Simulated assay, not measured.
Amino acid sequence: MSRQLQARIESFPLTRAFTISRGAKTAAEVVTCIITDNGVTGRGECVPYTRYGETVEGVLKDIEAFAEAINSGTSRQELQSAMPAGAARNAIDCALWDLEAKLTGTRVSATACRVLVRPVPTAVTISLGDPADMADQARAHASQKLLKVKVGTSDDRARMHAVASAARDAEIILDANEGWNESNIREHLLLAAELHIGLIEQPLPAGKDEMLAHIPHPVPICADESVHTLADLEALSDRYDAINIKLDKTGGLTEALLMRDRARELGFGVMIGCMVGTSLAMAPAVLLAQDADWVDLDGPLLLARDRSPGLVYSGSLVSPPSADLWG
């Protein structure tokens, strides 16, 4: 085999600190996987996430440890059982998809998409802050149709009022990042309904969300940290109305496509989300998002510097990737 796998850590500064209930970051730390075969190169990017016990150094080592297998011809399908789901497998899986597309001359969209690819509307994220700051952020994105608002404190009422008042024409997703609890969730859900919030994402900690099966959902509730792969879906059907599929959780586009289809069979709504990464990380997710109910792929908009070429964003829309970028 003529394949050669390489990987490296890269850092992309953000335009401003990105804050959620678990902390803040000022740069996107990513791991890039490059697989070359007979002069043709495929690329994939992952964003290791400390919430799941990942570090950029550890993920880099995991990718490099699998280089011999990839260089010897391990296929994308074989990769699914050979590596666990997570960021490392995502980078390799997406690099293999890109490589296959370039070697065969067949775009990934022809295989992965059930509809004619088109620009899709994406949410823009409002970082966690005090109510006035979050209202200012919302007003700065007044033209956006969908806002994803980071909450997740013991009392988010003022934040919810502030953003809803500042963005009256936008649909709002509240992302609590596991930050609510049994004592405040009912109050927050009722207020969200009064404010016509469209979706609540992961209000309770993963593994401590049994309560969701026993309380009303006046606003649909979406699983994020509680759902990673296909195997998680059925156990969540009594707790959640929708799921957030992220490639860094599923371990790549291959698993994500299966997960999307099974989620539909089980009656879940589908969101396609992302970690904070570059256009290379978002590119396969844009294809996955072609028939999603909610799309949250604004990672490159948070960066001071993206890859070139990158994805094209126009207003609320993000276009499918060019062949020069990915797939």
Rank of each mutant, 00 (worst) to 15 (best):
R8W: 00
E10L: 06
F12K: 04
L14R: 08
A24W: 11
A27W: 04
C33H: 00
C33Y: 01
V40T: 14
R43H: 10
E45M: 04
C46I: 06
V47G: 07
P48N: 08
Y49Q: 12
Y52D: 06
I63K: 02
E64N: 10
A65K: 08
T74H: 09
S75L: 08
S75E: 11
L79K: 10
S81D: 15
A82M: 10
A110N: 12
T111E: 14
V124T: 13
S127P: 12
S127Q: 13
G129R: 14
M134E: 04
H141T: 00
A142F: 12
V151N: 08
S154G: 15
A158L: 12
A162S: 09
S165M: 14
I172R: 15
L174D: 01
N184G: 04
L189V: 00
L191N: 04
L191W: 03
E194N: 13
H196G: 00
A206R: 13
D209Q: 06
E210G: 02
L212V: 09
I215Y: 01
C222I: 11
D224P: 01
T229H: 14
A231L: 08
A231Q: 11
L233M: 07
R239A: 01
A242L: 09
G252I: 02
A256M: 07
A256P: 03
A256N: 07
R260A: 10
R262C: 05
L266K: 04
G273H: 02
G273M: 00
C274V: 09
A281V: 02
M282E: 10
A285P: 06
A289M: 03
A292D: 05
D293M: 03
V295I: 09
D298T: 03
R307W: 11
P309E: 11
S316R: 02
S319F: 14
